[in-house]
């Protein structure tokens, strides 16, 4: 574990250099502006004032509502989208990183249909698996292309880390010694008081893991360990329970946050995987939190082929 953590630091530095090249990104005109207000790039980055908790004074203020895309999570969506926007939605929402994704074409021309994610057979192209796990992932993708997708989030398992951050935070709060992030309907706690990760008998794995954070200038650096095994996205790319995740979050303009996520998996990866996600500020104030967890009568099951299927509303028996 110690070796892999040091390994992560060097990649984080490389990641910083890459991040620095993209500072102008926020200055572009958005094709889907959320409001008619002044462009976010013209607004100063909000900062925590002198009355704020000491851990955050003068630092960028990430507090409030966020979304992984510019519209819809908070009900802002109006009217149809361009084909490019729809394709982007699926890549951004379900694959870990648009630059790391192959999108299987949709015979119906709608990029996968309503809310079902990308077409099965879409996959992460640059995930640095060791050969045996590459082989396993290739088989998962080949099965998906035949209609067999065994992503357990469909069965109401939590997203967990780092998949939660592929979807992005929905709401961020600064408490005195801790940042709380609501993502999906799960909560992350990021301890800002310098405490170490638990060791020995205090280690307790969870879906969100144990996160500590510190500031490097205007960048919030978050280090997360002790995460359950799981998968990165709907393509069912798997990770072990030994992953170490380093995030670097910064505002590229007042309303746009970039998170560069480095995942180190000493069991399954031959190198760290560095991906980048962008989050967009949601409505000001305290909006009603969207509810999207599975209902008690969730109708998704795993069928005899080992893939997801649905029980229809009028069916009492599960499909065989």
């Amino acid at each position: 574990m110690k070796i892999s953590r040091a390994y992560g630091l060097s990649t984080a530095i490389i990641a910083m250099v890459v991040a620095a090249q993209s500072t102008e990104v926020g200055a572009q005109t958005s094709p889907q502006p959320m409001t008619a207000a002044a462009p976010a790039a013209d607004k100063p980055i909000p900062r925590v004032g002198p009355d704020g908790p000491p851990a955050y004074r003068g630092r960028p203020d990430f507090r409030g509502a966020w979304a992984s895309q510019r519209r819809s999570t908070w009900g802002q969506a109006k009217g149809p989208l361009s084909k490019e926007a729809r394709t982007g939605r699926r890549m951004a929402f379900l694959m870990f990183d648009p630059e790391n994704a192959y999108m299987e074409p949709d015979p119906a021309g709608d990029d996968g249909g309503l809310d079902f994610g990308p077409m099965p057979g879409s996959y992460n192209t640059k995930i640095p698996y060791k050969p045996e796990f590459r082989k396993e992932y290739n088989q998962i993708v080949a099965d998906a292309k035949k209609g067999i997708v065994a992503d357990r989030v469909g069965l109401c398992e939590p997203y967990g880390m780092p998949r939660l951050m592929a979807m992005g935070p929905k709401y961020i709060m600064y408490d005195r010694d801790m940042i709380a992030m609501v993502a999906s309907n799960e909560m992350r706690f990021i301890y800002m008081d310098g405490r170490p990760h638990p060791s020995g008998v205090d280690v307790l794995k969870s879906w969100e893991g144990h996160s500590t954070g510190h500031w490097e200038g205007d960048t919030l650096v978050v280090d997360t360990v002790d995460i359950h095994r799981g998968n990165y996205d709907q393509s069912n790319a798997k990770h072990s329970d030994q992953i170490h995740v380093i995030e670097r979050m910064r505002l590229i303009d007042a309303d746009t946050m970039e998170n560069e996520i480095t995942t180190i998996d000493p069991v399954m990866f031959k190198a760290p995987w560095v991906v980048k996600r962008t989050y967009f500020r949601g409505p000001a104030g305290t909006p009603n939190m969207p509810a999207d967890m599975c209902p008690p009568d969730n109708n998704v099951i795993i069928d005899k082929d080992g893939g997801q299927n649905v029980v229809l509303p009028f069916e009492e028996e599960k499909p065989k």
């Binding site: 819809s72 490019e84 939605r89 015979p107 119906a108 067999i148």
Partner: peptide, 24 residues
């Protein structure tokens, strides 16, 4: 990067399950 970021702003909801069971 500009091209890719241009793709991202879109309008999603949560995709809780795959659409693999449907023949598109």
């Amino acid at each position: 990067l500009l091209f890719l970021v241009g793709l991202v702003p879109a309008f999603p909801a949560i995709a809780h399950h795959s659409g693999a069971m449907f023949d598109r």
